Amino acid sequence: MLKGQKTRIRPIEEDDIDTLYLWYNDQEVNLWSSGAWPLNTLQSKDQLAVKFLDGSPDTYRYAILDENDLLIGTLGFKEVNIPGRSATLYIVIGNKEYWGKGYGTDALITLIRFLFTQWNFHRISLDTWDENIRATKAYEKVGFKIEGRQREARFVLGNYHDAILMGLLRDEFLSLHGK
């Protein structure tokens, strides 16, 4: 288990699936996590169990816990590029009571420190959509920089939005947050 200042990160367990199912069926959670409402909600508990517990071999998914070991979100990484020592990161704080309180930022710092120091990654990428200002600010607080924009790459609630592409290099992160 990885421990941050406010969060703990552990593998997702079978007992987590009921909570994840509720989050996947919450319009507001899905809107801010991916802009994909209602597409993400068309999965059964069994499909979510396969996705989160079995998953693909190149996708790593973890649970985010608060100080009292309450499940509050998920995060992970995918698209691992061994020669480039890079990956793409994702995070969802599903428990809305924890939004805007620094839990997501703490979980990101904790996982990213692990990826840079233990996995020896050089670069981490992520993306969001242009109206997800809260996420963009949290990513910038961690050290991510906006590297680009894909015009009208997301379709959210009947409108096209730009995807915001962000990246973080190992040296930048370690200079901000130490080892």
Rank of each mutant, 00 (worst) to 15 (best):
M1G: 13
L2Y: 07
L2P: 10
K3P: 01
I9W: 02
I12V: 13
E13C: 11
D15F: 10
D16S: 04
T19G: 03
Y21Q: 02
W23I: 07
W23A: 04
Y24D: 08
D26Q: 01
W32C: 07
A36S: 15
A36Q: 05
A36N: 13
W37N: 03
N40S: 12
L48M: 08
F52Q: 01
F52R: 03
L53P: 06
G55Q: 02
D58E: 15
N68A: 12
L71N: 02
P83A: 07
G84K: 12
I91K: 00
V92T: 13
V92N: 10
I93Y: 03
I93R: 00
G94D: 06
G94Y: 07
K96D: 04
G100S: 14
D106P: 07
L108S: 03
T110P: 06
L111P: 02
F116M: 07
Q118K: 15
Q118Y: 09
W119T: 06
I124F: 02
S125A: 07
E131C: 13
I133Y: 05
Y139P: 00
E147C: 08
E147F: 02
R149C: 11
Q150T: 08
E152F: 07
L157F: 11
L157P: 00
G158L: 12
G158P: 06
Y160M: 06
G167H: 02
R170N: 10
D171M: 10
L176Y: 14
G178D: 09
